[in-house]
Structure formats: structure tokens, C-alpha cells
């Protein structure tokens, strides 16, 4: 029976697994192989070499882009998660009715076309944009502010907005799981609200915080629309370069090496965050 169950389970999941193998594993292996090849104008040289990685890691432009991407992604993640936590906390602990409605309202902006959302931030932050017009109208400033758009700040703001629901949901779920009697127990044992928060609530919410950190961090590294639309030249990120290598520059092997290099870095940072979270959250789950 057990062997039958194993067989049935594997048989049932095989279509999905097969699809993932063909459309995810195979392409990723292909990219890996590609990154060891070289592009000779129109032809691919299939001799295995580390040249692409050497170029990716030694040329200042690439390393600058990678480190800027990392910096921006980390700031975006920090800002997004820190901004999201109070909302998740408010929803979980203070909203008694209509929780579902709140959650729904939080996810609605996320379903606006991503391109248009980024573009609209450009409209808000621009020289003659909504913010400048409003501030001028209120007499707070005389000349439009220029540091709003076409720099890393704009990228951070736009991405923090784009990933908000993804940061809120995991934290909210973790907070919802906390048995409320634990908080009463802590209070009963003499903890005030602040101590209770740091000794009970936060450690128990840690799995959610780690999840939302990773959910925001990993994809933001790969975004190239936001930097292109609101980032200016200072705000360009590694994904833009990857896109260029696969597009105009027609150097897919170098693009593959860049993509894998940045993934490797993100993966190791993610691992560190995961372990730190585990340590801080104790033996939760």
C-alpha cells in the first residue's frame, strides 16, 4: 500500500514536475552552459572558458552595477519590510472586523499594470510632477525639487511600493499564528507592552519577517523596468545590463555570466539572512 501510495503520488505530480524540469531546470542548465561559452560576433564559441566570469568580475562597470543593485535591493528590502511590519501588526492585533477587506485593499494597487504603476511614480516625482506642483502650490518650495526623480531614491521608493503586499502578507500570517494566550502569559509574568513585544511577538513573527525579506530582496535584484523608467543613469541596475547583453549588445554568454553571478551573490545573502532569522527567532517551526 505504501509503495502504491508512493507510485500514485509521483504519477500525479509528474506532469507538473516534468514541465518544471523542461521549462525551468533545462533552461537554467542551458544558461549555466552558456556562461562558459563565448560570443564571436554572430557565432557562439562553445569552448568552455571562464572568460565571461573574469570580465564580469573585473570590469569596473559590471562590478559597480552589481554592487549598486545589491545596495539598492537591500535598502528597498529594509524600507519595505520596516514599513510593512506596523501594517501587518495593526491588521493582526488591532483590526477586529473586516480583516479580509483590509487585505484586499492592500492587494488592489498591486493588480494595476506594473508598467503603469512605475510610470505613474514618474508622474508623481517628476519636475512638473504631482508632488512638486503640490508643494509649490502650498508655498513650501519655490523651485521644483530635482532630487526626486532619476536617481536611486526614486528606484527605492518605487520598488518599496511595488513589493508592499508581498512584504505585508507573510508577516501578517506569522502574526496571526501567534497564540494570543502567550502574550497574556508574558503580561501575567510581568512584561510590559514593549518588553512583551521584543520577547514574544517579534521572535515568533520572525519566520514571517525572514520570508518577506527574501520575497522582496530576490526579485528586486532582477528588476529592470523601474531603474529604466525612474532611475536615470545613477539608478541603473545589473538587470538592465543583463537585458542589454541579451538584446542590443548581442552577447548572451556574458549576460548569462552576469545573471548567474548576481544570482549567486543574492543566494548567499539570502542564506545569511535565513540563518540570522533562525537564530533570532529561536526554534520557531
Amino acid at each position: 500500500m505504501l509503495t502504491g501510495e508512493r507510485r500514485q503520488g509521483l504519477a500525479l505530480i509528474s506532469p507538473t514536475l516534468l514541465y518544471s524540469l523542461l521549462m525551468l531546470a533545462a533552461p537554467l542548465i542551458m544558461v549555466l552552459t552558456f556562461s562558459f561559452w563565448t560570443q564571436n560576433y554572430l557565432e557562439l564559441d562553445t569552448t568552455l572558458t571562464l572568460d565571461n566570469y573574469r570580465e564580469a568580475w573585473s570590469k569596473p562597470i559590471y562590478s559597480t552595477l552589481i554592487f549598486r543593485s545589491l545596495k539598492i535591493s537591500l535598502i528597498v528590502t529594509l524600507v519595505t519590510v520596516v514599513l510593512a511590519f506596523p501594517i501587518a501588526y495593526y491588521l493582526s492585533f488591532h483590526v477586529k472586523q473586516r480583516k479580509a477587506l483590509w487585505l484586499f485593499l492592500i492587494t488592489v494597487p498591486f493588480w494595476t499594470s506594473y508598467l503603469l504603476r512605475v510610470f505613474l511614480w514618474k508622474v508623481i516625482l517628476g519636475y512638473n510632477g504631482v508632488l512638486n506642483t503640490a508643494l509649490k502650490g502650498l508655498g513650501i518650495i519655490e523651485e521644483p525639487l530635482t532630487f526626486l526623480l532619476y536617481n536611486a531614491n526614486a528606484v527605492v521608493l518605487t520598488l518599496a511600493h511595488a513589493w508592499a503586499p508581498f512584504a505585508i502578507l507573510p508577516i501578517f500570517v506569522a502574526l496571526e499564528k501567534i497564540d494570543r494566550s502567550l502574550l497574556e502569559a508574558a503580561e501575567d509574568l510581568g512584561d510590559g507592552p514593549v518588553r512583551r513585544f521584543f520577547r514574544i511577538t517579534l521572535p515568533l513573527a520572525m519566520p514571517g519577517v525572514v520570508a518577506s525579506t527574501l520575497i522582496v530582496l530576490i526579485p528586486t535584484i532582477g528588476d529592470f523596468i523601474t531603474p529604466k523608467l525612474v532611475g536615470g543613469t545613477d539608478g541603473l541596475m545589473i538587470a538592465n545590463m543583463i537585458q542589454i547583453q541579451f538584446g542590443k549588445a548581442n552577447n548572451a554568454p556574458l549576460g548569462a555570466a552576469l545573471a548567474l553571478s548576481s544570482m549567486l551573490i543574492v543566494a548567499s545573502i539570502s542564506a545569511v539572512i535565513f540563518l540570522l532569522g533562525k537564530r533570532f527567532g529561536g526554534k520557531v517551526q
Binding site: M23, L24, P27, L28, M30, V31, F34, L214, I215, I218, P219, T220, I221, G222, D223, F224, A239, I242, Q243, F246, A252, G255, A256, A259, M263, V266
Partner: peptide, 13 residues
């Protein structure tokens, strides 16, 4: 959790 650009690039290759 994979950046979409990685998925896109991999499939393209």
C-alpha cells in the same frame, strides 16, 4: 522567488 528576468533569460537561451 526567482527574479523574472532570470526565468525569462533562461527560457530565451
Amino acid at each position: 522567488v526567482l527574479p523574472e528576468i532570470i526565468v525569462a533569460v533562461a527560457l530565451l537561451v
